[in-house]
Design a protein around this nucleic acid. Structure first.
Lengths: 207, 207
DNA sequence: GTTATAAATGAATGAGCGCTCACTTTTTTG
DNA sequence: CAAAAAAGTGAGCGCTCATTCATTTATAAC
């Protein structure tokens, strides 16, 4: 005879994950304490341990459920656009918007996760999956553009996609560190301009 | 009446910094212990504290002396090249080579430093100085190229430079995490190709 | 309302860490 | 060689933290 409904348990689990995210991105994984997270979730330490067996499991769940879903999220948000070039531009826009507005914590989570990945194999795997998924999606867009004859024929989809995403994450990481005096929108625009000159053949350039 | 020469003290200080770098980049700042570093330096814990007052000071010295000198290093290594475009290409080459061959630990140090910067103000400042210095140098190259009429006139040196360097560091971070299946040279070549199509006006493109 | 049982609590446990300091070793100087 | 003083040692202090568990509280079923 269970005391609460599965739905209630799921809601509490989410609350704990939200609390963990908040604490991890403000203090970093190692400095954050389980007590901090319990307090943020308005729970006791013991109760928290009924939902996640260790502190590391909390982090891993965050990596898988908050970072790991980026590829499908991007795919869903840009599926409606047919033209490969437009879809690429949408991706860049989506990224800068998400970073600033919709999911401002995700950039910080990415940074904390990268730092932890150096040591923790499962976390490294989680990051790998996310990046590989994103590269695959973007490379697909580029490949389609090439196939349709709209993009420069000698571009290597995999490499360009990886470069693009490394840049995106590089900007994200620097942005959340508050390190450079970066204007996110200006960088997005320059990136699009650069991509356009590289990918789009001459006839489309005159505008 | 000092017991050892200043030169000897300086050599020991360097040895400790080398040990700290090795330990920090394999374990991360928080997980690394002062005991680890002392052991790596073949010294006792107490002796180490005669050279650096706290663990945090060790990290800070590394940030300033290993990361902070990147701008002058880049300037020195590319000064001999006169043509702005060639110098830009040299920078990209330099970066990929340094990452793989000459200073393989620097990428990891960068990642560990970024993670710590979230919390630690002085470290954040150190990172900021490094990035600002690099942006300034690269922006200078681009500005010169524009002034000489060799580069696209509507390019914004600051933004393009920041974008370029965020990409470089993004690649570095992903590379050291071992996350994507990245071929560093291929990415460097694609980057140069992209830059060429963006920065160089038509007459120079035909080759 | 009673009871069975899941959920929640938080003090206690034990391990580990940064840093100190009373002491030992080494080197320089005269 | 003797003495002074810097350099080096490492056990120990005080503290923090992840995790546990005996106990209390809340809920659902009847």
């Amino acid at each position: 005879m269970p005391k609460v409904s599965p739905a209630h348990k799921e809601r509490r689990r989410e609350a704990i994950l939200n609390a963990a995210m908040e604490v991890f991105i403000t203090k970093g994984y190692q400095v954050a304490t389980v007590g901090d997270i319990a307090q943020q979730a308005q729970l006791s330490v013991g109760a928290l341990y009924r939902y996640f067996p260790t502190k590391a499991d909390l982090m891993l769940a965050l990596v898988r459920e908050r970072l790991g879903r980026a590829p499908e999220l991007f795919a869903r948000m840009t599926r409606s656009v047919d033209d490969p070039w437009e879809r690429l531009v949408r991706c860049v826009e989506l990224f800068t918007t998400a970073l600033r507005v919709r999911h401002p914590g995700t950039g910080r989570l990415l940074l904390v996760t990268m730092a932890e990945a150096v040591q923790h194999g499962e976390i490294r795997q989680g990051l790998h999956d996310r990046f590989a998924g994103l590269v695959e999606y973007v490379a697909g867009i580029i490949a389609e553009g090439i196939a349709r004859g709209r993009f420069r024929q000698d571009a290597d989809p995999q490499t360009v996609a990886a470069l693009l995403l490394a840049m995106a994450d590089g900007v994200a990481v620097y942005w959340v560190t508050g390190t450079p005096d970066v204007e996110l929108n200006a960088m997005g625009q320059s990136l699009v301009a650069m991509l356009r000159s590289y990918l789009l053949p001459e006839p489309l350039l005159k505008e």
